[in-house]
Amino acid sequence: MRWTKRAALSLAAAGLVTTGSVAPVLPAAPAVAADQERRQGGWVPAPQEAFEMPAGARCDFAVRVQPVVDEVRKLVLAVYPDGSPRREIYTGALINEVTNLETGARSTADASGTSLVEYATDGSMTWYVTGPVLLGFRENAGSLPRGLWLVDGQFKVEFSPTYDKTITMLHGSTHDVCTDVD
């Protein structure tokens, strides 16, 4: 993973990765034990589902985003008392095929970045990212215009509880993938 080492160093240097104690795992039924292991330190697959958006939602035309390579995995770093995730890391290869459903035009987008995700109790979340990710923006719902944006570099994405997004770039670039299949 080209981004994993760089992201770990960047996140550590920025003070974003913290260590903490993990509660001991007590003997439990197999399904419960597997769930506890997932929440307490084991990397698990985090597949992205294919999705379609109607014309005007992200692009001027109907679009489908479908992973063609998906090796993304996640590691839960901290949980809330109810067991829900508080902080996770996502990393791995993710290549999406973006298709204009009206013309059939296709393009690929490498979204193989690494993200430290912090979840707040109000439903908001913050991503600390190194590398490319593909983010959809609704009209007037964030710091970029409506589109499917490939954002690359080092940056922070703050999601409101309604999924409005604000990107703060340390350095990097943005590209609207809708223009690739228009």
Rank of each mutant, 00 (worst) to 15 (best):
M1P: 12
A8I: 11
L9K: 15
L9V: 11
L9W: 11
L9N: 11
A12I: 14
A13Q: 13
A14H: 04
L16T: 00
L16K: 14
T19Q: 02
S21H: 09
V22S: 15
V22H: 09
L26N: 14
P27M: 06
A28I: 01
V32G: 00
V32Q: 12
A34W: 00
D35N: 15
Q36W: 13
Q36C: 06
Q36V: 15
G41I: 06
G42P: 00
G42W: 02
V44K: 05
A50G: 12
F51P: 03
M53F: 04
G56I: 11
A57M: 10
A57T: 08
A57Q: 10
R58I: 03
C59A: 06
D60N: 15
A62D: 08
A62W: 09
A62H: 10
A62N: 05
V63P: 02
V63G: 06
R64W: 00
P67M: 01
P67E: 01
V69W: 01
V69A: 13
D70A: 06
D70L: 11
D70N: 15
D70Q: 05
V72S: 02
R73P: 09
K74C: 05
L75I: 15
L75V: 15
V76I: 13
A78I: 01
A78T: 02
V79T: 14
Y80E: 10
P81N: 10
P81R: 06
P81K: 09
D82K: 07
G83A: 07
R86E: 13
R86Y: 10
R86Q: 15
E88A: 04
E88Y: 03
Y90M: 14
T91V: 15
G92F: 09
G92H: 11
A93D: 13
L94R: 12
N96W: 05
V98K: 05
T99V: 14
T99M: 03
T99S: 07
L101Q: 08
T103Y: 03
R106H: 02
S107L: 00
S107I: 07
A109N: 13
D110R: 00
D110H: 00
A111S: 13
A111H: 01
A111G: 09
G113S: 03
G113W: 01
T114W: 00
V117E: 08
V117K: 06
V117L: 09
Y119R: 12
A120V: 04
A120E: 12
A120S: 10
T121A: 10
S124R: 03
S124G: 14
T126M: 05
Y128M: 13
Y128P: 06
V129E: 02
T130Q: 08
T130K: 04
T130F: 09
G131D: 12
L134V: 07
F137M: 12
F137D: 02
R138D: 13
A141G: 15
G142H: 07
L148M: 03
L150E: 10
L150K: 11
V151A: 02
V151P: 05
G153M: 02
S160N: 12
S160F: 05
P161N: 08
T162V: 09
T162F: 05
K165T: 09
K165H: 05
K165S: 10
T166A: 04
T174L: 08
H175L: 05
D176C: 12
T179Q: 05
D180I: 03
D180F: 00
V181C: 04
D182L: 07
D182K: 09
